[in-house]
Amino acid sequence: MAAFGTKFTGKMILGTYQDGHWSDLELVPVAPFSLHPATHVLHYASECFEGLKAYRTDSGEVHLFRPDRHVARMLNSAAQLLLPIPDGDTLTRALHMAVAAVKDEIPAYPGALYLRPTLFGTEEDIGAAARPTQKAIFYVLTSPVGDYFAGGLKPLRVKVDDQAQRSTPNFGEVKTGGNYAAAMRQVVRAREELGADQVLFAPGGIVQETGAANFVLIEGDELLTKPLDGSILPGVTRDSILTLAADAGLKVTERDFTVEELLRRAPNGEAALTGTAAVLTPVGELLYNGDTIQVGDGQMGPWSSRLREQLCAIQSGEADDPHGWRVALAE
Rank of each mutant, 00 (worst) to 15 (best):
Q315V: 11
P267S: 07
L307D: 07
F4M: 07
A182V: 03
A112G: 03
A328N: 04
T243W: 06
T118K: 03
G220F: 09
N179E: 02
V279P: 02
L141P: 01
L263M: 13
M74K: 03
P117M: 09
V30I: 08
I218V: 15
V283Q: 03
L115A: 06
F65E: 06
T118E: 01
E222H: 08
L153C: 09
L263P: 02
F33I: 05
D19N: 11
L273P: 03
I126M: 08
E219S: 09
H40V: 15
G275Q: 04
P32V: 14
H21W: 03
A245Q: 07
A130S: 09
P155R: 12
D221E: 14
E50H: 02
L14M: 10
L119Y: 04
D24A: 13
L141G: 02
Q80E: 11
F201P: 02
F171R: 08
V140T: 05
A54E: 05
L262R: 06
W325Q: 08
G51T: 13
P117A: 05
D247S: 11
F215E: 04
P227F: 15
D229M: 05
H70P: 00
G51L: 09
M1L: 04
T92Y: 06
H40S: 03
S23N: 00
D197H: 14
Y139L: 15
R264K: 09
L64W: 13
L217Y: 06
M1W: 04
G284Y: 01
R93P: 01
S46N: 06
F149M: 10
I85F: 03
V145A: 13
T142Y: 13
K154S: 11
P107N: 12
R265W: 05
